[in-house]
Design a binder for these strands. Structure first.
Lengths: 342, 342
DNA sequence: GTGATGGCTGTAAACGTTTACGAGAACGTT
DNA sequence: AACGTTCTCGTAAACGTTTACAGCCATCAC
C-alpha cells in the first residue's frame, strides 16, 4: 500500500523549478546559492524524497555493502564476531550482507563468484575448511577480502587469526601447574582449520611439558557442537581415565562435564576441565568453566578495520595479524576454588 | 590486485561480434540462434563475465535483498531466528542484509527511512519496544514489512507472533500440576514487548489457577541477560521464598539456578525452575531446564515466507499468524526425574 | 512471384544518479 | 568601458543492464 509514489531527482527538480544537477548538488552539500538550496530542500521535504541507493551505487561503482561469510552461524563465537563486525562497518557507513555458507567449501566458491557481481565492496570470510580451489578463487578475486583464520597456502591477503597453538599451551600449562598429569583432549573435526590447529597445539604443549603423548587421550568430535561433544566425551572416558581434559570449545566442555557428572565423577576434583573461546556459556555453566579466550570479538574488530582500511586504500601493504589468547580461570580447573564463584 | 578488469556486456558483445542486446538475451536464456549462443558463451567465458548486480537492480527496480532488523543480536533466540530466515530467503534467491538496530527505537526509525533508499525489497522487523512514532513510520513505508512480535496499535501488516500468554500458562499449569504452590516470576524489562506480554500471561495464569497474586513474587530484570538475571534472582529470593520460579528467558533461568545453588538450595527439590525459549542452554544446563518453546525458528520461517509471498504478490491480504507454544519438560521442574537426563 | 508470417537480431531508450563542461551573470580591476 | 575572475547553474553524458520496437531475412502459401 504505497502511500506516496517513489519520488526521484526529476520530480524534485520540476517542483523546485531547477535542474536535476542542482538538486543533486544540494542533496550532496555541494556549493549552491541560498535561494536554490531553500527551494530544493522544500521540494524534497514535500515529496519525501530520499536518493536511490541503487542508482547511486551504479554511478559510483560501490555499494556501501560488506559481505560476511562464516561457516557455522550456529556457533556462539561466530555470533559474537558477527555482532562486532556489524557494529564496526555500520559505523563506517556500510551495510552488512550475511552470506551464510554451510561448511561445504563449494558454497564459498559460489559466494566468491557471486561477489564479482558486485553486490558488495568487500568480503570478510572465515572458512572452516580450506581447499586448493578456494585458494585459487581467492587469488583471482577482484575485490578486497579479509580472511579470519588460516590462509590457504600461497594466498596473500589481509588476515586475522588467533594463535590457537599458544592458546592450547596456556590451557595445558595451567593444568600442569595445578598438578594434573593425565591431560586428555577433546577436539572438533581434525579436518577443519581450527581442529587441525588445536590438535597441533595440544601435541606440542604436551611435548614441551615433558608429558608423554597418548593416542587414547585424544578424541575428535564430529562437530563443534554439544551433541557431538557428548559422544566424544563418552568415548574418551571409555578408553582412558584422565585427571584433566582440554576441550576445543566451550560447548564440548559443557558436554564433557555432563558426561563426567553422569558417571559419578566430580569437576574439578576428579577431572579438571578447560574450555575454549570463553563464551558466555563458560560463565553460565555449573561449575563455571576455565576457558581460553581466543579474543573473538577483538579478532572480528581487527578484521573489519582491516577491510575498511583496504577499501579506502587498495594499495596498502597486506597485513596479517595474530591475536594473543588469554586464559580465564574459573572453577572447573581449580580445586577448592568453588567459593570464588560469582 | 585486480587480475582482470571488470568486464561488461559491451566487452563481451565486441568480442563475440554481436550486439549487447544479444548478449543480454543469451545470458538470460531468451531465444537466440545456436550460433549466437555459442559465440556469446565463449566470449563470456574467456572474459570471465558476470552480470553486474547493481545495474540489474537499477533496471529491474528490485535488489534481491531482504533486510532483517532484530533489536538484540546477542540473544541466542534471535540468532536462531536469523539463521532460519537466512536459510529461507537465500533459497529464494535473496540476500540477507543485517540491520542491527540497538534497543533504541530511534534506530528503527532511521532504518525505515533508509529502507526507502531502496537498498532492499522488503524488511523483517522484530522491535523490542514499540512507540507511536514507529507505528507512523511503519504505516508510511512503501516497502513490504513483516513484523515479528506485537504490532503497534493501528498498524496493519503481515505479522507473526508467539502466544506468550499461553506459553506462561503452560509453565504455571505444569508447575501447579507438580504440586507447586508458591510460583514466582522473573521477568525481563516490563516496558518491552515480550516483557509486557509475559507479565500479563503470568498474572492471568495465576488467577486461572486460583492462586493469589503476590507482588513480592515477581521481579523484572533490567535486561534479558544472564547478568541481569543474577541480580533479579537475588532480589526475588530476598523478598520471598517460592517453591517454583517461572523465568521469562532461559538465560534468566540459568541465572536463577546459579543463585539458588549459591544459597544452598536445590533445583528442583527446593525450587522448581521453568525457563522460556527452549534454547540450547536449557538443554546444556545442569540440571537441564524445563522450558517453554516459543517456536522461534518456526516463527522465523513463517515470517520469511510471509515476506516472500508478499514480494511476489503485493496485493495479498494481510496475514497475522500466531504460533502455539509448547512445553519441553526437563529435570529442573520434576523431582526424582534426574535419571531421565541425557 | 508476391505477400504474409515468423524468427533473430540490432538500435535505442530507460532505470536514477553523479559530474565534466560550458554558458551566463555578477563582480572587481584597469 | 572593456576585460578577466569567480561563482552558479543547466545540459548532457555516463554507470551496466533490460527490453520495446523495428528491421531483416527466410520460409511458406497462394
Amino acid at each position: 500500500m504505497p502511500l506516496t509514489k517513489k519520488s526521484t531527482l526529476v520530480l524534485v527538480a520540476e517542483r523546485a523549478g531547477v535542474s536535476i544537477a542542482s538538486v543533486s548538488r544540494v542533496m550532496n552539500g555541494l556549493p549552491a546559492s541560498q535561494q536554490v538550496i531553500d527551494r530544493v530542500r522544500a521540494a524534497a521535504d514535500e515529496l519525501g524524497y530520499v536518493p536511490d541507493a541503487t542508482a547511486r551505487s551504479l554511478k559510483a561503482g560501490k555499494t556501501e555493502q560488506i559481505a560476511l561469510a562464516v561457516a557455522d552461524v550456529g556457533n556462539p563465537v561466530y555470533v559474537g564476531m558477527m555482532h562486532e563486525i556489524s557494529r564496526v562497518v555500520t559505523k563506517a557507513g556500510y551495510r552488512l550482507v550475511l552470506s551464510s555458507t554451510g561448511s561445504d567449501p563449494l558454497d564459498q566458491i559460489d559466494l566468491l563468484t557471486s561477489l564479482n557481481r558486485g553486490f558488495a565492496d568487500g568480503l570478510i570470510l572465515s572458512p572452516l575448511r580450506v581447499t586448493e580451489e578456494l585458494g585459487q578463487q581467492l587469488r583471482a578475486s577482484r575485490l578486497p577480502i579479509v580472511i579470519i583464520g588460516s590462509l590457504p597456502p600461497g594466498v596473500e591477503l589481509d588476515n586475522v587469526r588467533a594463535d590457537s597453538v599458544r592458546g592450547i599451551a596456556l590451557a595445558v600449562d595451567h593444568l600442569a601447574a595445578q598438578g594434573r598429569r593425565r591431560i586428555a583432549f577433546i577436539n572438533g573435526p581434525v579436518d577443519t582449520v581450527p581442529g587441525a590447529a588445536r590438535l597441533n597445539g595440544y601435541l606440542r604443549a604436551l611435548t614441551e611439558q615433558g608429558h608423554p603423548q597418548n593416542a587414547d587421550a585424544q578424541v575428535g568430535a564430529s562437530d563443534f557442537t554439544y551433541r557431538a561433544g557428548l559422544k566424544a566425551a563418552a568415548t574418551l572416558l571409555d578408553q582412558t581415565t584422565p585427571d584433566a581434559i582440554v576441550c576445543a570449545n566451550d560447548l564440548l566442555a559443557v558436554a564433557a562435564m555432563k558426561v563426567i557428572s553422569k558417571r559419578g565423577l566430580r569437576v574439578p576434583d576428579d577431572i579438571a576441565i578447560v574450555g575454549m573461546d570463553d563464551t558466555d556459556i563458560a560463565d553460565l555453566a555449573q561449575p563455571s568453566i576455565t576457558s581460553v579466550d581466543l579474543r573473538s570479538t577483538k579478532r572480528a574488530r581487527a578484521a573489519a578495520k582491516l577491510l575498511l582500511r583496504r577499501l579506502e586504500n587498495p594499495q596498502a601493504p597486506v597485513e596479517q595479524i595474530v591475536i594473543e589468547p588469554k586464559l580465564t580461570v574459573r572453577a572447573s580447573s581449580v580445586t577448592g576454588a568453588r567459593e570464588a564463584e560469582l
